[in-house]
């Protein structure tokens, strides 16, 4: 199958000569959730800004579907790749949630009817019925973020990029983000996440790309990446606390990487027969 996003030998040099990403190759297919990890300044955001043409490669080529980003306008690419910023204040500016939801569709010059249908669908999926007349700035940060995601959902681009979706969110907000990412996938979107949130990646158990000093140093399943001590150390990353814990427990399957609390409990449940002696009250 042809990849939907194809990044070939892409480097980007900012004016002034700083190389932000160096010779990146990355194919992303339909139905994938991909997390992009790495320290601040490692090139994550620069890479992702190439997906919707905000940045053009200095060398190499980026294709979104059949479109070569070098030749297309951002407006055209933005109907294929939607970007939800880290700070929802950067993309919410209209006086009501209803207007905010319609903005993207109107901007792409969709008919009123089409816009209505799409906005209605976003309202349903995000259960925003009661908030339509609220001013986004009267909502808390978690709700505002949700409105930003819903407006992207209304445009319904194939690819949804979420930049640090859980930053500053409380536990409930983080759980909601997790649900939404899964919903985006079920709705047929490709989801690209830029994040430092190792718990989120653990829960999603998804493909993980690690950037370090402008280069891609790993691209594999989260469980493989998180158990590679060299890669983790090089990129200054720490796996979720529970993974660290499980790695030190002699009884657990040494060939497995446990990314969540649930995955350990499930494994123990399944292996209970021979493990009843575990923790037996003598």
């Amino acid at each position: 199958m042809e990849p939907y996003i194809s990044v070939k030998n892409v480097s980007h040099v900012y004016p002034g000569g700083v190389t932000a990403i160096k010779d990146i190759n990355l194919d992303i297919h339909e139905g994938e959730i991909v997390a992009i990890l790495g320290s601040n300044g490692s090139g994550k955001t620069t890479l992702v800004k190439h997906f919707n043409g905000l940045l053009k490669p200095t060398t190499g080529e980026v294709k979104i579907g059949d479109l070569n980003t070098r030749k297309e306008r951002i407006s055209k690419l933005s109907s294929h790749v939607g970007y939800v910023f880290q700070n929802p204040n950067h993309q919410t500016f209209l006086p009501s949630v209803r207007q905010e939801l319609a903005y993207g569709c109107k901007n792409l010059k969709m008919s009123e009817e089409e816009t209505d249908t799409r906005v209605q669908r976003a309202i349903e999926l995000f259960q925003l019925h009661d908030r339509l007349d609220d001013n986004p700035f009267d909502l808390n940060s978690s709700q505002r973020k949700e409105v930003a995601m819903a407006s992207i959902m209304a445009v319904s681009p194939k690819v949804i990029v979420l930049d640090e979706p859980t930053t500053g969110q409380d536990h409930k907000g983080c759980k909601r983000v997790l649900e939404l990412v899964k919903m985006f996938k079920e709705e047929g979107h490709i989801v690209v996440l830029i994040t430092h949130d190792m718990h989120l990646i653990g829960e999603l158990n998804c493909r993980t790309v690690v950037m370090n000093q402008s280069e891609k140093i790993a691209d594999d399943h989260a469980s493989v990446v998180f158990s590679d001590k060299n890669i983790m150390a090089e990129a200054g990353l720490q796996p979720p606390q529970i993974t660290h814990f499980a790695n030190e427990i002699s009884h657990f399957d040494p060939n497995r990487t446990y990314l969540t609390v649930e995955s350990i409990l499930e494994w123990m449940e399944a292996n209970q027969e021979e493990d009843v002696k575990v923790g037996t009250r003598s």
């Binding site: 536990h171 409930k172 606390q241 814990f245 409990l265 123990m268 009250r281």
Partner: peptide
């Protein structure tokens, strides 16, 4: 709607699930 560190969550659920 808050949570404990993952290790604490794990130990609590382990106790509950396996009667420990």
């Amino acid at each position: 709607t808050l949570h404990a560190p993952q290790v604490t969550e794990f130990l609590a659920r382990y106790n509950q699930q396996f009667g420990q």
